[in-house]
Design a protein around this nucleic acid. Structure first.
Lengths: 335, 335
DNA sequence: TTGAAAGCGCTAACAT
DNA sequence: ATGTTAGCGCTTTCAA
């Protein structure tokens, strides 16, 4: 932030206008002689425009805010990485904000980002919130005039989402095709869209293959490993040959609890997870899981948001398809 | 970014100066009547200062840049989270930059951050670089006048580091005290400070307990799981009862390879990892590992950098002590 | 083809 | 105790 446009003007004996024009590749008629002169000076003096000044006058900062509940969560760090990559390619920058899964901080950060002039916000809704709170966050960004894009949640406006109904369907169908008919589920919190959709997919698969739905095979979890362990305990007196955990962490917990019950995976119980986080692959019994295309999600989120900020695109929801990754934790039921 | 200071001036019939003075809690003498009037108007009109304008004039943005090789890496995401947290508490913001472990991007980003007026940079050196390249990055930030703080690397200037020599010592001593005398190592790349220090600690422990150093028990790895597997294969014809992997990922790889060799952990071979990443705890045989205080590291990095940016502190290196976490992968040697 | 001047929203001497 | 004024570094009419 050393040399300014003024310095270049002085050095070349031109006006700041001319320098600015050249440096911004404006189609205005400027003799190639002066153009060269300016470019040369700019290079020699290692000129870099002060983006604060540019942002102030252009009302554009080429910056997006990325609000996530917890960056340590693979889901968000994978998205963050690709979002950042997409931005970098276009000369944009990412402001990272960790909400710690607190709605309050979400709001606080939206204001901060607003005052820093971000051109858009990618929001991973904190899970401590209900629909009303989500609405509140959306409303706030709208009132600040900041384009918003939601991650894996549709409320209004733009979003990138995963078809979790299909995810639920794929997992269940896989088990059914292996011959399972008593398929238990450890779900996510019952008020979360993602979990509800997975249940829908689960039920759709059952119904499509003529298997009766048994509500007692569903236990509610909270996406933590511990919930997987608890879930298996709650299912102790139930007959089931397969288990669909709504995320991999809970599947790991289920592994643990099943082992303690003397049951083997997949000989006694087949297990399917969801998320396909890195470790599922390297477990002793690699976990069959439903993979969400996080990279695509992150990249698409950033690209879409930049387009919206540029006025090139209107509100839009992009949906991605999950994919079943079959590993060693699922097999035909015994006998 | 709707209402400006001008609007408030107009609404209250005061000058922008007065409004600015009040809003910035300047110690100047202002009647509490007008103070109230301004504050009230500001609140009603939901005033938020345009930080671009503030930054432009104050030459301070209260923003730091965080450059990491890969945010998906637990090491960096944990640090990022805490750094962000420390910043948020002080009203600072973090710009996240992922270098993809490429020195070139590191340089590119330093320039970008400079033109965006960050007040400091926390740099996690990309591992594709040698000392010379590291030096280049430092030099560039210096020439741009941006305070710099290195993560886990000391070159010059400020840094937060972990005492890896001690880490290596702790791991080795633990194994020695259990009775092991033939302790193999799968190290990191031989040119990396962190790995070199661990080896030093390893050797120090051996020497302190009167155990001869046997170079053939050391194989070089690259911090990837695969290197752990390869390492065990390379050690196949060696006599050893314990293995010190220089990070957890390689320890997992070692687990795999040992299992394939029909060896059990810890009955046949004790294994110690390094990093204590989350999954080490939930493995079937939970991994004994050396824990780096990443949270403290991240928090300290941000706090120190903010202090430096504020001119409150000079160059400073903060060193943290690693900690041995004993789990199930280490035991007395057989017989 | 180039330049003068206004102004983005804010702070900070310097008056008054 | 409050206001005037001059910028921060840049873009952008509008003139010349």
């Amino acid at each position: 932030m050393r040399t300014t446009i003024k310095d270049i003007a002085a050095a070349t004996g031109l006006s700041v206008t001319t320098v600015s024009l050249v440096l911004n590749h404006k189609p205005s008629g400027i003799s190639s002689a002066t153009r060269e002169r300016v470019l040369k000076a700019a290079k020699e003096m290692d000129y870099r425009p002060n983006q604060l000044a540019v942002g102030l006058i252009k009302r554009r900062t080429n910056t997006i805010g990325l609000l996530v509940p917890d960056i340590r969560n693979m889901f968000y760090s994978a998205i963050a990485k690709e979002a950042e990559h997409a931005c970098r390619k276009k000369g944009w920058t990412v402001m990272l904000c960790n909400t710690g899964d607190q709605h309050k901080r979400e709001l606080e950060y939206i204001r901060v980002l607003g005052s820093r002039g971000v051109d858009g916000i990618i929001l991973g809704i904190s899970s401590d919130g209900n629909d009303e709170k989500t609405q509140e966050s959306c409303e706030l960004t709208r009132s600040l005039g900041i384009p918003l894009l939601l991650l894996d949640r549709t409320v209004q406006g733009s979003a990138v989402v995963v078809d979790h109904k299909k995810g639920g369907f794929l997992a269940t169908e896989h088990l059914i095709k292996l011959g399972h008919r008593r398929i238990a589920c450890i779900t996510g919190p019952s008020y979360l869209q993602g979990s509800i959709s997975r249940v829908e997919g689960y039920r759709q698969a059952l119904s499509q293959y003529g298997i009766p739905f048994d509500e007692s095979l569903l236990v509610e979890g909270g996406y933590m490993m511990q919930n997987g362990e608890e879930g298996v305990l709650k299912l102790a007196d139930k007959q089931y040959t397969a288990l669909f955990a709504f995320n991999d962490m809970m599947a790991y917990g289920a592994y643990k609890a099943l082992r303690r019950q003397g049951k083997s995976v997949p000989d006694d119980v087949s297990v399917v997870g969801y998320d396909d986080i890195f470790f599922s692959e390297i477990l002793e019994v690699p976990l069959t899981s439903v993979r969400q295309p996080l990279e695509e999600l992150g990249s698409a989120a950033a690209s879409l948001l930049m387009e919206i900020a540029n006025g090139e695109t209107e509100n839009k929801v992009i949906q991605f398809e999950p994919q079943l990754i079959v590993r060693k934790s699922t097999a035909k039921p015994k006998e």
